[in-house]
Structures are given as structure tokens and as C-alpha cells.
Design a protein around this nucleic acid. Structure first.
Lengths: 143, 143
DNA sequence: ATTCTTTTTGAGACGATTTATCAATTTCAA
DNA sequence: TTGAAATTGATAAATCGTCTCAAAAAGAAT
């Protein structure tokens, strides 16, 4: 059984529903993407240049955005670039961000997630994904 | 007593400490900024164009960044643009967002906020602001 | 008030990141 | 195998924010 069978199937299902095609590039990019917790398009471009020097940057952007629509990725804007988070990596999707030095601490908190579910249910929503970012000063920068 | 005397003083104090000058533009931009909970440079540019058609976009960016350094504002990357949050507004707006129809429900949850504080403290952070977005399907779109 | 030094401003050039364009290629169902 | 529809790669273009620099303004000293 391939490493990322579940995600591959999710992608194929999304493609089918939207009359999109399964291409060599999409498979290549999915494989590379699922190995990371998060990555930028530029990083992936350089990483994949070794396997396929002709893979265009535009294709990577398009495909990562496709993954977002399929629910496999989630875009996060930080600094000047866009980070694409791998949503199959369960924890570590919440962030503490130092507004002074830019330090990022990833965390996971079950209690918060449970309360989020509660809020959603109370409002008739079914949560697919979420984004939680806490901005402040880290211990170093506070002084 | 002027509306935003406290913030104005904070700015003047910051200017004094850094050999910066108090200008008409900085006063104008501060006034406009403090009336909002958050704003982008572009929005403020158009808003202020009525009062002073010669106020340059670069000046607005520079000034909003100055406010960040003075602690009056906080930059947050959202979508493709930078939102400048007014730190004197405490109102936290967390959002439930339907990924199908785009419906947005605002909510606030004290328990979640308390847990956020806990996480931050445990990691040595002091929270200035945060952002919480829950993505999913609303009752209608779930069918 | 006038002078003088320093900072700020406005306009546009510039750099970085992402999206749009389009002809050639690939996918995939018939 | 064929053909319609989608995708790709290269690059042009758009977007956002910063940098540059001469002219203007601020503020201290005279």
C-alpha cells in the first residue's frame, strides 16, 4: 500500500467531481507535499527541480491551490510568502507568533479544539478545518 | 478633551524617544486609524484622499508601520493584503466561515480565550492579539 | 522671526510574490 | 485511435509593499 493512499484518493475524488484530470505533475507535487508539514511554492519548486527540471513554478502554484480546494492543504500568509500547510498532519496547526522577531511556536490544544466544535455545533456548522494564530511577544522580545 | 488623547500622547512619546517629528500627516493618519478596528493601507489611502488628495500611499505605509513600532497598531497578513489592527480596540471577532456559500458568523468565546492565554503563558508569550477562523459547512450547505 | 540641520514627504521606480495568458501537449472517454 | 477538454510551461502582467531622492516641513538655536 502506497504511503499516501488516503490523500491520493481524496485528490482523485476531488478531481473526478470537478472534471479535472490526474496528471504526472499533480502526482509528483502531491508526493512531495505530503512529506512536509508546510512548504512554500518556491521551496517546492527548487526541491522538485531535481526530479523534473521542467516543472514550472506556475504549475506548482496552481496545484497547491488545487490542494487547498480539495482540503488537503491550507494556505497561510506569513511575511511576504504563502505557506501551504499539510492538513493531514493533525496537530501542530496552531501557531504562536512573535510580532517582534518572527519566531513561530507550533502547538496543539485538545481543549481548545473541543470548544471550537461546541461553538460550531451551536451555530449549525460542521468544521472541516480551522486556523488559530496567537500574536504577541516571546519571552526574549518582551524585555 | 480630544477623542484619542491617550493614543496621541503615546505616539508623541514614541516620537520624542526616537528623534522623530510630529507632522500633519501623522496626526491625520492617527485620527483616521483610531476610528477603525482594523484597516489596510489601501483603504486608508482612499479614505483620506478626500481630506488630502496629495497624501501619498508610501506615507501611509510608513506611518502605519510607525504605529506598529509605537504599539498602537499591529500588522496581520490576511489574504494578499496587510491588515493593521487597532490595538486599543479589544473586541475580538472570531469567525465561523462556510466554505460552500461563504456565510460568516462572528462569535466570541471566553473559555477559548482563557485557554489561549494559558498556552501562551506556558510558552513564554504575551498575547497582543489573535485570529481564530473555523472553516466548514453551515446547516444549509450540509443538506 | 530667521537660520540651519534633520526628518519627512510625495511621486514614481523597484523588487518580490502570485496570477493570467496562450500555444503546445496531455489526459481520458468514446 | 480519435478528438474534445483540461493542463502545462514560459513568460507577461498584476499586486503589494519598500526604496530612492529632491523638495518641503519641523523644530532647535540663534
Amino acid at each position: 500500500m502506497p504511503k499516501h493512499a488516503k490523500e491520493m484518493e481524496a485528490l482523485i475524488e476531488h478531481l473526478g467531481k470537478h472534471q479535472l484530470k490526474f496528471t504526472r505533475q499533480r502526482e509528483l507535487i502531491l508526493d512531495a507535499f505530503l512529506k512536509q508539514e508546510h512548504i512554500t511554492a518556491e521551496e517546492m519548486y527548487h526541491q522538485l527541480a531535481k526530479k523534473d527540471p521542467h516543472l514550472g513554478l506556475a504549475t506548482i502554484y496552481r496545484t497547491l491551490n488545487l490542494f487547498c480546494e480539495a482540503g488537503l492543504a491550507q494556505a497561510r500568509h506569513f511575511g511576504t510568502q504563502t505557506q501551504y500547510d499539510n492538513t493531514s498532519h493533525k496537530g501542530h496547526h496552531d501557531h504562536l507568533i512573535c510580532t517582534d522577531c518572527g519566531k513561530i511556536v507550533e502547538f496543539e490544544n485538545c481543549d481548545i479544539e473541543r470548544l471550537q466544535e461546541e461553538v460550531a455545533t451551536r451555530n449549525g456548522f460542521t468544521i472541516q478545518t480551522h486556523r488559530l494564530e496567537l500574536y504577541g511577544l516571546c519571552s526574549r522580545c518582551r524585555h
